[in-house]
């Protein structure tokens, strides 16, 4: 019983150690990229992630700056008729221009 428990715990230690190492490597790589947009995000969250001012993001998505605070991308998508992929492309492009020093 104790031997079986010990071996099982050893397998779990090896499994989690491998997962931690793999994810640390993946996490290090992911830090250099903007996070793909998802329905739960808010314009401010996207702004922070892509370093694009929030008012510019709302303008790109053709949304009034007076929208309710913390409106999610799923809700915005219903308002402006854009898919999250379309919003993603607009933000990624704008972030690329800003990074390159453009206006």
């Amino acid at each position: 019983m104790a031997v079986a428990g010990f071996l099982l715990a050893l397998v779990l230690v090896l499994y989690f150690a491998g997962s931690v190492m793999r994810e640390m490597r993946g996490f290090h790589d992911a830090q250099h990229e903007g996070r793909p947009l998802e329905g739960w995000m808010t314009p401010r969250y996207v702004s922070m992630s892509y370093r694009v001012p929030p008012e510019e993001i709302l303008a790109l998505w053709q949304i009034s700056p007076d929208i309710r605070r913390r409106m999610t991308l799923s809700e915005i998508s219903k308002l402006n008729g854009m898919t999250i992929d379309q919003m993603q492309r607009l933000v990624t492009e704008r972030a690329r221009v800003l990074r390159a020093g453009g206006q």
């Binding site: 715990a9 779990l12 997962s19 994810e23 640390m24 996490f27 996070r35 969250y45 992630s49």
Partner: peptide, 25 residues
Amino acid sequence: FADHLSEIASLIGNALGLITAATIL
């Protein structure tokens, strides 16, 4: 790590799993 929440959550989950498994070991 606001813009990498899923990745960091998964990393922490596995790290806690590692600590728990090591304690059981």
